[in-house]
Design a protein around this nucleic acid. Sequence first.
DNA 1: GTCTATAAGATGATAGAC
DNA 2: GTCTATCATCTTATAGAC
Lengths: 191, 191
Amino acid sequence: MNTPIDTRENLLHLATEIVQLVGYNAFSYRDLAGRAGITTASVHYHFPTKGDLALAMVERQRVLDRAVFSKLDVDVPDPFRRLQAFCAAMRRELENGRRMCLCGMLAAEHETLPPAAVEAVHAFFTDTEGWLGAVLLVGRQAGVVAFTGPAAPVAQALLSAVEGAMLTARAFGDLGRFDAATKWHLARLKP
Amino acid sequence: MNTPIDTRENLLHLATEIVQLVGYNAFSYRDLAGRAGITTASVHYHFPTKGDLALAMVERQRVLDRAVFSKLDVDVPDPFRRLQAFCAAMRRELENGRRMCLCGMLAAEHETLPPAAVEAVHAFFTDTEGWLGAVLLVGRQAGVVAFTGPAAPVAQALLSAVEGAMLTARAFGDLGRFDAATKWHLARLKP
DNA sequence: GTCTATAAGATGATAGAC
DNA sequence: GTCTATCATCTTATAGAC
């Protein structure tokens, strides 16, 4: 028997996958409802408006990614390898269905999102940059990462570079592009 | 009197601006027709389908950008400064209406584009990477740009980084983010 | 929570007059 | 080339029964 799980969580999971693939504006309640096996009216019960759904998707992603960061902090002691593991995690989205980073996609379409969702996207980037910055600092102290000055701008440059690498690699359907770009950027951080 | 210029060119110009701002799927014939001061039926006369319009936009952008590259080759003799000038050109889209790179936007939404348009987007990236690669090579020979190995992967990494910098800077409405990221990436190419 | 039914409007697109 | 008129379809969203 299919344990019917939490419908809301299931909807968020499915919606996220669709948005990552085709974008927020090409995604419809109809499509989502169809995949979830319910009607659009039922989707509206959980998420009254499309903007509510967008916001909920980003909030959920933030929680998931915080868990990923915590796990990486534990599982990958070496800070430089943690940066590599971060890239590998992003790469997995590409591998598993040619999906863009959710917030990278929403960033492109941010002009069409409700303000609350845009703020949530900001928070996602800020979260990720904060974690990357911390890894960079620890890495520098440990002598396995090299850069000068504050970590924040480097973290911003690194995250945006990874987002851009996903964007272009996805357009070409070529994982090698992502690998080459991220490898190059990480190599610039080697002592 | 308004010289009515070429309607087709005018439509492509307006359509490009809209897509750069809100994306391909949030953009409609109605919106475009309204701005051009004609009806949607007239737009369909010039571009039978939305996919035809997408393809024409990208082809036009490629021509415009080739002209930009040629001008930079003439006006900016120093190869490193030419890379800076390239970033400045991309930055201008951000300044002038918070617009994403047309092909960066279409790359995000490529799953919803007709195959011919996707190929045109590929060609845009290949064009740009080719030019960047040539600048990188000349720069290395002149001793003003430093990198090891072939230029192509470096050009890919640089272009994707610039696209990512536009993506995130735009989401925050913060030009400083674009400046900081591109400055950092270009600094990695200094001898 | 999920359904049926429905609304009001937008969407890409076409036929045919001028 | 541009228009009016029209189309079928899709879109987000709501009301009310079960």
